[in-house]
Write a protein that binds this DNA or RNA. Structure first.
Length: 476
RNA sequence: AGCGGGGUAGGGGAAUGGCACCCCGAGUGGCUCAUAACCACUAGGUACAGGUUCGAAUCCUGUCCCCGCUACCA
């Protein structure tokens, strides 16, 4: 029996609320899951929330609730996207779950036993402006390049992960083409080639009180990133699955900002744990709004709830992948979304379905249209694998798949206009109706759209059965 | 300043060496099955200046402009 396909998204950091960027990532995973399911594969889709660290503790303080309570509240908002947008994940992992904590501590012990973790005194320059450690290359005359202030020398004890040992293996994995698309692949390859250094993977508890303790050294807290990455394994365990039956992941979807963690550190951790490496890491870009980066202070954050209210779940799923470019940074503008909704969903798909169904309904009086539709459906089923093989989703190309589908709709509209089925009258016979059914191509369009628009496709199929037309996407 | 990403018809987005494509908008005509929809035709474009090439939006050099990295933030 072949291994089920495993798809993961990054786990969202709960110090902020979900926005359209999170939604895009979750939807991409959901679309791929539905595509693989249509191919007949078993699929497991894992997502969740990352809940430890200074920033969560600080945000909780501002909100006057405990860190755990704060994490609970925000985690729920992310989990809620499942119901709102038909995101069919199989398990939602939380890094504050006791099972995750336990799993992380076990892995930690395992790495320590292998002598891959080592306590060292860490001396570094710290910029209070950046609130971060700086390397020599980020300094000029002892001053932070960004804040132009003199950095302070800080000394503390940390555990280090011997990342440098894994450079060659990580590089070999990268060169096998594990990171997609080319831009990020190039970037991370150069980064690893330049040399990996051992990294600090713990912090003194006094500095980071909200996190997972090192079991036999409770004054040390495991660095958030190190621990969060392990969610991809702990999540399987928490879901009641045997890790070896599901790992390695077939597709891990991440944002471009966390590339280093996922394509340099994560594979090294996996090698250290004697586990196989993920087959593909998909790296998506960011969404700007009206040409500016989304930010709370600018007040331009677009939330999933706003999209839900204006377009509904299905249209949002379509518009995000058709209007924005998944792998590059793209710009979100409400008026563009409105125009595309009316242009392609209402006037395009929606109208094509309406006119076709209503034409077919007229012929139903003297010809068994339903039987012909059934035949057409069966013929399509027979060619299912071939159609799926041609899909852009086979190469993770969401945009090109939607473009192809749109072309099918245009072609169908043209055929109907040119052949004028409404003038057929008495001439209409089975052959002609069959032609109409095939030219409208609705069965195929439904097939191709089903990963993107699962509910719409159900409604479309229902209309083809009842031959009663009902607007799929009313104009805005 | 540095580093990175960009500049494609009136607006938005594709195309990575070979007839520049899609959505909206404008004009003219067609059609009436359909959600004031649908179809055809027309106008309009690769920021600028050089270079490489049989051929450049795509590669190279320079100029101008925009965006991100510096406050929450994928």
């Amino acid at each position: 029996m072949s291994k089920p396909i495993l798809i993961t998204t990054s786990i969202a950091y709960v110090n902020a609320q979900p926005h359209v960027g999170h939604l895009l990532e979750l939807l991409s995973a959901d679309i791929l899951k539905r595509f693989y399911r249509a191919k007949g594969e078993e699929v497991f889709f894992l997502t969740g929330t990352d809940e430890h660290g200074v920033k969560v503790a600080e945000a909780a303080k501002v909100a006057s609730v405990s860190s755990q309570e704060f994490a609970d509240q925000n985690s729920r908002k992310f989990a809620q996207l499942k119901a709102d947008f038909s995101i069919d994940y199989d398990y939602f992992v939380r890094t504050t779950a006791p099972g995750h904590v336990e799993f992380v501590q076990e892995c930690w012990q395992g790495l320590k036993d292998k002598n891959l973790l080592e306590k060292r005194t860490y001396k570094a320059k710290y910029c209070s402006g950046c609130e971060a450690f700086k390397t020599e290359s980020e300094l000029e005359n002892g001053r932070c390049l960004i804040h132009h202030i003199v950095v302070s020398e800080v000394e503390e004890e940390n555990y280090f992960f011997k990342l440098s040992q894994f450079q060659d293996q990580v590089l070999a994995w990268l060169k096998a083409g594990s990171v997609y698309p080319a831009g990020p692949h190039q970037e991370i390859t150069s980064f690893v080639e330049a040399g990996l250094t051992d990294i600090s993977v713990s912090r003194p508890k006094s500095k980071v009180p909200w996190g997972i303790e090192v079991k036999d050294d409770p004054d040390q807290i495991i660095y958030v990133w190190f621990e969060a990455l392990l969610n991809y394994l702990s999540g399987l365990k928490l879901a009641g699955k045997e890790i070896n039956n599901y790992w390695p992941a077939d597709v891990q979807i991440i944002g471009k900002d966390i590339l280093r963690f996922h394509a340099a550190i994560w594979p090294a951790i996996l090698i250290a744990l004697d586990l196989p490496l993920p087959k593909k890491i998909l790296v998506h870009g960011f969404i700007n709004v009206d040409g500016k980066k989304m930010s709370k202070s600018l007040g331009n954050v677009v939330g999933p709830d706003q999209l839900l209210e204006r377009y509904g779940s299905e249209a949002t799923r379509y518009l995000l992948f058709r209007q924005l470019s998944f792998y590059d940074d793209s710009n979100f503008v409400w008026s563009d979304f409105d125009a595309l909704y009316n242009g392609e969903l209402a006037n395009g798909l929606g109208n094509l379905v309406a006119r076709t169904v209503s034409l077919l309904a007229k012929f139903q009086e003297k010809i068994d249209v339903r039987k012909l539709l059934g035949q057409s459906q069966q013929e399509l089923e027979a060619n299912k694998q071939e159609i799926l093989q041609e899909s852009g989703l086979e190469t993770f190309d969401f945009a090109s798949e939607l473009e192809v589908i749109n072309g099918l709709i245009k072609k169908a509209d043209l055929w109907i206009t040119e052949n004028q089925p409404w003038t057929w009258g008495k001439e209409a016979d089975e052959t002609k109706i069959k032609e109409l059914i095939e030219a409208s191509n609705l069965c195929r369009i439904a097939w191709c759209l089903s990963p993107f628009l699962p509910d719409t496709v159900k409604s479309l199929k229902n209309q083809l059965t009842t031959l009663e037309s009902k607007p799929l996407f009313p104009r805005l």
